[in-house]
């Protein structure tokens, strides 16, 4: 099956019918830029990785569905190669308003998805979710564009769409709602923490080059889960 993700054609080989179904919104025709394949042992390795990760969080005896493991393997394999073709993966919730995108990033459980839900409630049809968990960023000629991906997080919110990025916002919980623009050098460690780091040094070097080329505004947002949080953030960044 050929999919196009962040303007890159990827041939997915040896994938299950359930994965094909999930990938359908990204189905494309053309020549692949690269191929990835589910290999024997991939699912088992992923299962062990999840068990280790969950155990570190004190969670035991969780059965991770096979489909989730397969999607996770594909995600890592695809995002390990995309930097070589101009796009990198980021952990965040991306929403477009009237054609301009805002990417919210923070550690899991901080409230990224809750915050973009507040934006959708406030802005109605002006707001379109690009991806709620693992969007892609592409940097071409100084323009940073966020793209949807098939990996839409636990709420399964996202679409095969794209929008130029107006801002990347680092979100933290706060009793009050506040926002401030931060310089790039202050943003960089948080940005680095949010992006996918390939294991291949060449792809990682390319990732770092793409980060250098990104010309967007960065903000730090302290917010609660009240509708006011969306207003403060939107007004602060628009």
């Amino acid at each position: 099956m050929l999919v196009r993700i962040s303007h890159i054609n990827v041939e997915l080989e040896n994938i299950s019918p359930s994965v094909i179904e999930l990938m359908k919104p990204f189905a494309a025709e053309g020549t692949p830029d690269f191929s990835v394949s589910i290999q024997p042992g991939d699912i088992e390795s992923e299962r062990e990785w999840y068990a280790d990760m969950l155990e570190k969080k004190g969670i035991k005896n969780v059965i991770v569905p096979e489909l989730h493991l397969e999607m996770s393997v594909l995600r890592r394999k695809v995002r390990s190669r995309t930097p070589l073709f101009g796009a990198l993966g980021i952990h965040g919730s991306a929403i477009a308003v009237d054609g301009m995108a805002y990417v919210f990033t923070a550690n899991s459980g901080t409230g990224k998805s809750t915050h973009t839900r507040l934006w959708r409630e406030m802005l109605g049809e002006h707001a379109v979710m690009v991806n709620d968990d693992k969007p892609m960023l592409r940097v071409d000629d100084g323009i940073t564009t966020v793209y949807g991906s098939p990996w839409t997080g636990k709420h399964k919110i996202g679409s095969n769409t794209q929008a130029p990025v107006r801002a990347i916002c680092f979100l933290e919980r706060s009793m009050d709602n506040w926002i401030r623009e931060i310089p790039r050098h202050e943003a960089f460690p948080d940005l680095f923490h949010a992006i996918f780091r390939p294991a291949d040094p060449v792809a990682l070097a390319r990732t770092m080059e793409l980060l250098e080329k990104m010309d967007v505004r960065y903000y730090r947002l302290g917010c609660n889960m009240e509708p006011e949080a969306a207003r403060v953030a939107y007004e602060g960044m628009r």
């Binding site: 390990s80 050098h185 960089f188 680095f192 996918f196 780091r197 390939p198 294991a199 291949d200 040094p201 990682l204 070097a205 770092m208 250098e212």
Partner: peptide, 18 residues
């Protein structure tokens, strides 16, 4: 080999691979 050196306007960085 699991680390790379990245040179930027902000200085030299040591970056861990995945």
């Amino acid at each position: 080999k699991t680390f790379i050196i990245h040179e930027s306007a902000e200085g030299t960085m040591l970056v861990p691979t995945g």
